[in-house]
Design a binder for these strands. Structure first.
Lengths: 223, 223, 223, 223
DNA sequence: GATGAATGAGCCTTCATTCAT
DNA sequence: CATGAATGAAGGCTCATTCAT
């Protein structure tokens, strides 16, 4: 298993540059991404075979490889899409000109609703499950997703701290706390597979409201 | 995957006297569990082959199957051990007769120190990664671990709420919030593989202190 | 196809040392080598699948990989065997104490008989066919086989040149020439697949005799 | 692999008028042959994919199939071209009216220079490597190449034997011996991949001179 | 006629699991 | 009981070849 490192690649690695044509039909690409996302979410990364993906996406296995270099790249593409999809529009909610409690409430609702969605939970599960072996995927995902949100919240808090409305010594830490506290353990339970349905709206509302109240009072929010 | 478990030993049982049918040497069992834990933590569930386990545990592959029905059962056994190992002693810290802030501080320190350990993070990662396909493992793990802690904290809070020292409408929810705020995102980052070393003690202290302060003030703790 | 060099191996290459147990039953090893040799000779390296080999050797495909790291190593093992099998005993024929013409006649007969055997031709064919992509295999084969013979003959000629019985300015070159002339194109034709049966003995004799006469007269052999 | 070759064009033939059915642009054909030759020589038959060929020839893969029925036919076309390219002009050197030693020297130089060229070696390698599975390709190649040369030399020798200048009992055999002996093992080593650069002119000269001298003296050439 | 895209078949390799010893 | 050896099944990936445009 170790001696072959030098000799095996000889046979194929000689082939140089120029990939096969790099599938460019965006529609088909979508079809593949959607099908792959569906089945990856259902089975996890390792337990999903490329045949499964092909079946789920209704294309031939070979076509998969026209659009994506390999299984890992396909998966990474899905992750990237998943995190980037709505983050931007969510961050836009952090409007410093609106009243803080309402902004954070709305923002929290958005975040929690998204995070608790089964498909999103599934994506996080996979990334976490794979993080040991492929730390770059995990880090990248974390940084472009959760961390980006935390940073935005921290910046938002900075503003209000400067304005004297909040007493927060470490806004970065506070932002992380905020993101956790509004979840009330709801996402965590789902991560472990305890629950699988999207939570009812009132439960989300309750958790966000409770967490937000705790946060505001705890950091001495002065209307 | 589970069907053939009862039939094989039967033959042996018939031939010999009342000898214990399957692997019962507790020392060897330990050896296997330790080796398996080590390698599972390093590679994850799917990426670890039974050959890897055998090598890591220094036993033959066949012996593995004498002590554990299959890969999944072996893994489950490790998880069970992992969660149960220290939970009990940690819960004992929640002594209602000691001053609340100190109890929660000490308890939080314990919890966070444990959760941030690489091997523990690895175990959680695996369970989460596997939760989609094997929800029972995930649920069981969650219930015997995180949930058990939450419940204990909730009960502890109940006591102080009853004593009028705390104003908490939903102690179960508050317990979950407590468990999250004290982490300050420290465990989450590790879950995604962003960091891998155990955090320095002062960082843990800072996070617990900050989270606890937030929690106490937010829930109107009155000394 | 090129970007994956760094990322793909991550998944598996993590596994370290200790191969699976390295099949050691020499009988089974023989069985595999023989079966593989048979089918490789029939179909060539690339056109022979490991399934073909397994079938031909009457073992499971997985067993193949217990005894040989991969297809290339299996093939190399066959080549090594093939060249080493009889070379030594043939070189022993070059006895400087026997009369030169008889020695070279006997030696030439041995060499040509062997080289014209279908299975040997097949081995050479494969090695040559593969030499572009795997030059080490080709070189190694050439050096351990043809070159070794040439060197031995050169040394043998040296002796007789020193004794004044032969007038050869470059014995290395002469040795190469000798090895070729005695074949009379017989091996070459077989290499290209023109003929496939082993040549009749008298044809071999004729070619060797003719080539040897040419060689001796050409290099002024003086009884 | 060969079955479907006649049926496809039929449809087109019916629809349109007397337009040439299959790829007839000789320029494009050249382009394909050259590109294919280049890459086949580099990688060998099996290791060269039709994508490689398409890339090397700068045409689409589908176009390849307009000009050549399949991979094998394309390859065969290249081989045919390769052998026929210069054989004729070389055979013309065998002028019975010129002094024999000079003719054979010049002829030998031409032959050996050509055979030792990397691209030519590569072609031979491929044909040999493929000969087991596709004996017609091998035979055809051998007959139109090496054998044709041998025959011409044999005929040339016949003339001089008849003129009493040479004492050769079997000119066919002698021709084969001549072709081999002038190579001095130079081509053989290259066939096995030991060397890859074209040999320097003086080395070629030396081998031819040595071989020719041996041949002439051995067959009693009388000026 | 030329091409980009698609695919069924098949390859090498590995894995979880089970016997015979 | 422990093990070395063996294997059926499956996985990721590529290829020669063919349509629709």
């Amino acid at each position: 298993m170790e001696g072959s490192q030098a000799s095996r690649p000889v046979m194929k690695e000689l082939r140089r540059g120029g990939r096969p044509a790099a599938g460019t039909d965006p529609q088909k690409r979508r079809q593949i991404l959607d099908g792959a996302h569906r089945i990856f979410s259902e089975l996890g990364f390792d337990a999903t075979s490329m045949s499964d993906v092909a079946r789920s996406a209704q294309v031939s296995k070979a076509t998969l490889y026209v659009y994506f270099q390999d299984k890992e790249h396909l998966f990474t593409a899905i992750c990237a899409e998943q995190r980037d999809r709505n983050v931007a529009e969510k961050l836009a909610l952090l409007d410093v000109n609106q009243p803080l409690p309402e902004v954070l409430a709305r923002f929290g609702m958005e975040i929690l609703s998204t995070l608790a969605q089964p498909l999103v939970v599934a994506a996080h599960r996979i990334v976490i499950g794979v993080a040991e072996r492929m730390p770059e995927i995990g880090s990248e995902f974390y940084e472009a997703g959760p961390l980006r949100v935390i940073n935005a919240v921290a910046q938002y808090l900075d503003h209000h701290v400067a304005a004297g409305r909040l007493n927060v010594p470490d806004t970065q830490l506070a932002a992380a706390q905020f993101c956790e506290v509004i979840q009330g353990g709801m996402v965590k339970a789902r991560l472990y597979g305890v629950l699988n349905e999207p939570p009812p709206r009132d439960e989300i509302e309750k958790n966000v409201a409770s967490g937000l109240a705790l946060f505001l009072k705890g950091y001495g929010f002065a209307g």
